[in-house]
Design a protein around this nucleic acid. Structure first.
Length: 309
RNA sequence: GGCGCGGUGGCAGAGUGGUUAUGCAGCGGACUGCAACUCCGUGUACGCCGGUUCGAUUCCGACCCGCGCCU
């Protein structure tokens, strides 16, 4: 795990070389085909060398969800284990990690038309009004949400309308799901924020220099994608989309993309800081070789590294 | 050198003789099926010096800096 631009990919490749491991991507943007440069997806050569599960598995027009991720990740873990290898989960989408480890409530799929209707309602009545509505059918969830929390209010409401029962009720009946794997959780990050900001800026510049805009233009030209899709809302893509539709100039787009990336990293840190059983690997410069330190940590917890490398 | 205009928190940008907008960024946080999402919280800043005043960011004067015009 680790914030964006913290060096996860590099470390993962090195681990693959030393452990008998295979990578499973835990990243909500890498799942989409055509989101390559801007998502910092490993190159085709790298992917050939280090196979990644859960990369390029979805068209940008079709949203991917945390529940699907859990299902797919578990399948990949099983497959990799069955081949005698170690599943190495790599990514920065913390909700996915959480869903995988703790499980989600098992809910039937909900008709997308319900969500559309809720969003239509919200655009005319405002989210606070829907929050009030939620308070009537699911007071527990409503109490935990700010009246402006659009997405979560929408979710709670669609569950109620779609299943006839409150989300909080479903959750209260949720049974603990135990993962059939022993986990060793590691977070990579620079020792201080300024360092990460530096890396983020550098990487973004490289992306632009490597044809990021052309990549988004291609998506834009398809005509069937829009800014409400998760793929197009991804950091960088959203700002490029605004630029291509003439809403902002290039300088603004770059500035906004940079800020959005930093904000993403900040949110990832918020998850990581309170994450249980996490081993931190902090680096201070590009020369830091983290793998030895990681192997030390693995030994500390009696992880069978010796047999693996 | 003269005249005019302007100097507000990191940036942008309102405003007022006392109650100290706002947006962006930054920072902190929340988040069980959109999560690279969505949402919440967080800053008395008014160029400098002196004066007027019970009280000046706001009024007056000098000075400094920027812009424009004139010589």
């Amino acid at each position: 795990m680790g914030p964006t631009a913290s060096g996860k990919t590099r470390l993962a490749f090195e681990l693959c070389d030393r452990l008998n491991a295979e990578i499973i991507s835990v990243d909500s943007a890498l799942v989409y085909r055509g989101l390559d440069i801007g998502s910092a997806k490993p190159t085709a050569e790298e992917l050939a060398l280090y196979p990644h599960a859960l990369v390029d598995i979805r068209d940008p027009a079709q949203p991917y969800t945390a529940a699907e991720f859990r299902r797919d990740a578990l399948a990949a873990m099983q497959d990799i284990s069955a081949r005698g290898k170690l599943p190495l989960l790599v990514g920065g989408t913390m909700l996915y990690f959480k869903a995988l480890i703790e499980g989600l409530v098992e809910l039937p799929a909900i008709d997308p038309a319900i969500r559309e209707d809720i969003e239509r309602q919200a655009s005319i009545r405002g989210w606070p009004a829907l929050h009030a509505e939620l308070a009537a059918c699911d007071p527990i969830t409503a109490a935990s949400l700010h009246p402006n929390h659009s997405q979560r209010i929408g979710r709670a409401l669609e569950v109620y309308r779609g299943t006839g029962r409150a989300l909080s009720q479903w959750q209260s009946e949720q049974q603990e799901q135990v993962l059939a794997y022993r986990l060793f959780q590691v977070a990579v990050a620079p020792v201080d924020r300024a360092l990460l900001h530096q890396r983020i800026e550098q990487r973004l510049n490289t992306m632009f220099a490597s044809g990021f805009l052309a990549e988004v233009e291609k998506l834009y030209a398809r005509g069937d994608l829009d800014r409400n899709l998760p793929a197009i809302r991804a950091v960088g893509y959203r700002q490029a989309w605004e630029y291509l539709s003439g809403e902002i100039d290039e300088t603004t787009m770059r500035a906004k993309a940079l800020a959005a990336t930093r904000q993403l990293a900040k949110r990832q840190f918020t998850w990581l800081r309170k994450w249980p059983d996490l081993h931190w690997l902090l680096w201070k410069d590009a020369e830091d070789n983290l793998t030895p330190a990681l192997f030390e940590k693995l030994r500390d917890v009696d992880f069978p590294v010796d047999g693996l490398y």
